[in-house]
Design a protein around this nucleic acid. Structure first.
Ligand SMILES: [Zn+2]
Ligand SMILES: [Zn+2]
Ligand SMILES: [Zn+2]
Ligand SMILES: [Zn+2]
Lengths: 132, 132
DNA sequence: CTTGTAAATGTTATATTATTACACAGTGTT
DNA sequence: AACACTGTGTAATAATATAACATTTACAAG
């Protein structure tokens, strides 16, 4: 049974915006888009983003400083993430591949150390851009 | 045979600083440290960093906005990187594990798409911090 | 040796991303 | 009521990164 997170007003506004977006959104672009809804300051956006990341509803694409809604319903853990990023059109997709996540979750370094959390970003050209 | 990159003056100053550092360095911390050597502006630092990243002498730790010297002599490609990051003491190590890099380089997503470049960051507690 | 060109430098200003500090409001528990 | 916890609002500022422009250096082609 998943934990239910009742989003607060600001969290909901910002999650809805990110969730509807076909591409990752940056914090200040979010800010400009929600000013009509009464969210006026960067901090209000960052606080909502922090919380949404924490509960796994969104992820941060670190190499782009942008945020994307979780596309993987089993991702409440939120801390084991993988993405593919097109270097031409900047399309980003969340990868949900059981083998990959198992492989990475079980990976042990030279010292035998394991890591429960990871973030993986793949870069290349998406299908569309490759065929151009 | 590796390509020889003759670093320019600024590139060398900045690489040497990063290479000597036991921890990843941030751009403005680099700037403060090289002002005595005549590098005065952020852009001079960022330009050198960009070049050093491009030729694989350093890597950017995306989740920390910090830069670390390549600890893996076979990393000239520079675009397939993996790190372990301690969430307590912020120690960062580059992982050079042939199986891991082969696995990731050969990974194909649901659409059969392969990616030559990736960046992987593992998070956890290092040995020291775990035993505390 | 001169001309062309790519890479690197220097400088100023500015854009973008993110946090600190403080005051207060809502909710649920004891 | 007293408390703890989470969320909100606002202002100021810190930290990270790039744009625009002028100049210089390295080096190969002619
Ligand atoms: Zn997810
Ligand atoms: Zn594309
Ligand atoms: Zn390396
Ligand atoms: Zn540690």
């Amino acid at each position: 049974m998943e934990k239910q997170h009742n989003l607060s007003k600001n969290q909901k506004i910002i999650f809805d915006l990110i969730d509807k977006s076909p591409e990752p959104l940056k914090a200040y672009s979010i800010l400009f888009n929600v000013q009509k809804k009464g969210i006026n300051a960067p901090l209000q956006v960052y606080r909502a983003l922090d919380k949404l990341v924490e509960i796994g509803k969104i992820h941060k694409i670190e190499s782009r400083n942008a945020f994307i809604a979780c596309q993987n319903s089993s991702c409440q853990i939120s801390k084991a993430t993988a993405f593919s990023i097109c270097e031409s059109c900047e399309k980003v997709s969340e990868i949900s591949n059981t083998k990959l996540s198992k492989y990475l979750s079980n990976f042990a370094d030279e010292a035998g150390m394991k890591y429960s959390k990871y973030n993986l970003e793949f870069f290349g050209l998406c299908k569309k851009c490759k065929s151009k």
